[in-house]
Amino acid sequence: MMQFTCPHCGPRDQAEFIYERTVDAVVSLDAAPEDAMKSLFTRNNPRGVDEEIWRHTYGCRAWMVIARNRVTNEISATRAVGPEALP
């Protein structure tokens, strides 16, 4: 199991997190239909680093983007996503 450093809770076991999708798969609400379907149905799917959206579902329930190498599982960056929050 991997360990992610949640921006709010610190290092936690991957069992508390659920993977949503990669950032390139986000369908923004105002996208034109063709762009929306392109985002939904094509992926870079690199054999290396990609930006992934995870949720700390069983922890602080917040969402975050994690830059992870899919071959070595090395995590290079984690940033919080969501409404403005008190520290």
Partner: peptide, 11 residues
């Protein structure tokens, strides 16, 4: 619901 609220419409 959480994905739409927090990721797509944080504001």
């Amino acid at each position: 619901i959480s994905y739409v609220r927090q990721y797509l419409c944080p504001h």
